[in-house]
Nucleic acid binder design. Structure first.
Length: 432
RNA sequence: GGUCCCAUGGUCAAGUGGUCAAGACGCAGCCCUCUCAAGGCUGAAUCACGAGUUCGACUCUCGUUGGGACUACCA
């Protein structure tokens, strides 16, 4: 098989070489210990507490080290796009005082490592798929959905690992002529990785996780899809290319990604990229009706939506403080010792992060909130209340004068033992 | 089913072979107080289970159980 020829047949329009991209996106000119992190939401417009949790880690890691925190929109699934989602994401995080240094923005991209929408990075992805094909590490797969489905059912019946690998990867051995014929016939196809893993006896791989330490897993042996039939890359492939060329140093993501880590390891290796440092966080949990922990779900748990806190009128700073107590167990101790320092001064470390899913605790949030609000000057708080009321209780905002608001807020706040009545704006106004 | 992750009170957790097993939230009681919110004091409550290693295991190893994630041309 002439892989060079195959790659030209498949990607005739790709002119750039990997080396071109390497020089287009050189290493960032930042100090050696500075961290580059990113938030990579899919543009569904739904941003939840888990996103904020992760974003907070990213933001702290980058800004604490003098690095860069950027926003990349992972819109490789065209079915999911929701209009205006990017603005929502930026605004929501902005409300909680999390700001991006570069990446997708409300008025277009900023930064030298773009474009920051995966949907605009097609040529780059294709260049690297082409390169893999040239090296015999990727191939077009013409199997139909039905064929794959049949293989799966037979695999399940035979208690084998489902998937396309080894001898099940029927398109692996296609000749150039067969590929050409299938192409001429207008058959739809995906691009698959030709995995080097051994399905019968997968080798053990070890990855150092920033939070969890050494992870041991079996190597990948699946010929995973890297380019879908529509030419758009899968998350796995886009992740490898993007985080390499955007020079991400730390990839913070939820533990649900743990099981696809072997795929990423093989992809980075085959592409010749250095692996970033992965930081797999625990997932926020909740106690269900039966007393079991379960992942917060956006349908059943209103407190998962960021808007929940906004509507309730929790001060963003309170939510930040709460998240920090969940994020780093030694934060509360630090806060007690340094009641007046901004929380940015806290030396956040990934090593101190919990590996198991933390349970969301509204009681704790309320308590943290009381303490936080007491530290915020009355006039600032009045401004917060006013803008909150304007949005959620317009009928009230006329009744209260600034003067009155200030007086109410100032009640008993002085002295060594300030009053701590207030938790959130809605509660305050209910009271009034 | 397979693979991987996780396991200290109701919750968040400290702890890395020898501790009376921190601390915080919540809960109960008492004190302070005109009332409430705070604050102070006190209390109930935890190492999932079973083997092993060891003079000694919450800590190390192996099993078991339980919970979770993944197992897509979704991220």
């Amino acid at each position: 098989m002439d892989f060079n020829k195959l790659s030209d047949i498949l990607f005739p329009r790709i002119e750039k070489t990997p080396a071109d991209y390497e020089s287009m996106f050189p290493a960032r000119g930042i100090p050696g210990d500075a961290k580059v992190t990113r938030l990579g939401p899919s543009p569904t417009g739904f941003i939840h507490l888990g996103n904020l949790y992760g974003a907070f880690v990213d933001e702290r890691l980058a800004h604490q080290s003098g690095g860069v925190f950027y926003l990349r929109i992972e819109d490789t699934d065209d079915k999911r796009y929701v209009e205006g989602a990017v603005d929502t994401i930026i605004d929501s995080l902005d409300f909680f005082d999390i700001h991006f240094d570069e990446g997708a923005g409300k008025d277009g991209d900023t930064g030298d490592y773009g474009p920051y929408y995966q949907s605009s990075r097609g040529p780059l992805y294709q260049c690297f798929v082409k390169e893999l094909v040239r090296k015999g590490l990727a191939y077009p797969c013409f199997m139909t959905e039905e064929e794959i489905g049949e293989i799966r059912t037979s695999q399940e019946a035979g208690k084998e690992t489902p998937g396309i690998y080894g001898s099940y990867a029927q398109s692996r051995g296609l000749t150039l002529e067969q590929v050409q014929a299938a192409l001429d016939a207008g058959k739809s196809y995906v691009m698959r990785l030709r995995s080097g893993g051994d399905p019968k006896d997968p080798a053990e791989i070890k990855v150092e996780d920033g939070i969890r330490g050494t992870l041991t897993m079996p190597e990948n042996f699946q010929d995973v899809v890297i380019l879908k039939a529509n030419g758009i890359p899968t998350y796995h492939f886009a992740h490898a290319c993007d985080d390499h060329f955007m020079r991400t140093t730390h990839v913070v993501r939820g533990e649900e990604w743990l099981s696809s880590l072997p795929i990423h390891v093989e992809l980075f290796e085959k592409l010749g990229f250095d692996l970033p440092i992965y930081c797999h966080t625990g997932v926020l949990m909740k106690l269900d009706e039966n007393g079991n922990k379960r992942k917060l779900s956006k349908r059943k748990d209103p407190e998962l939506a960021l808007d929940f806190y906004k509507e309730k009128g929790y001060h963003p700073q309170a939510v930040r403080e709460y998240l920090l107590t969940v994020l780093n167990s030694n934060y509360e101790e630090w806060r007690t010792a340094n009641p007046d320092l901004p929380c940015e001064d806290f030396p956040f470390t990934i090593e101190k992060m919990s590996t198991s899913g933390a349970l969301f605790d509204l009681n704790k949030l309320n308590d943290v909130s009381k303490d936080t609000l007491v530290r915020i000057p009355a006039d600032e708080l009045a401004g917060f209340l006013r803008s909150w009321a304007a949005e959620y209780r317009p009928e009230l905002s006329d009744i209260l004068s600034d003067d009155m608001l200030l007086k109410i807020l100032d009640l008993g706040r002085d002295g060594k033992k300030p009053r701590k009545d207030f938790i959130c704006a809605s509660q305050m106004f209910d009271f009034i």
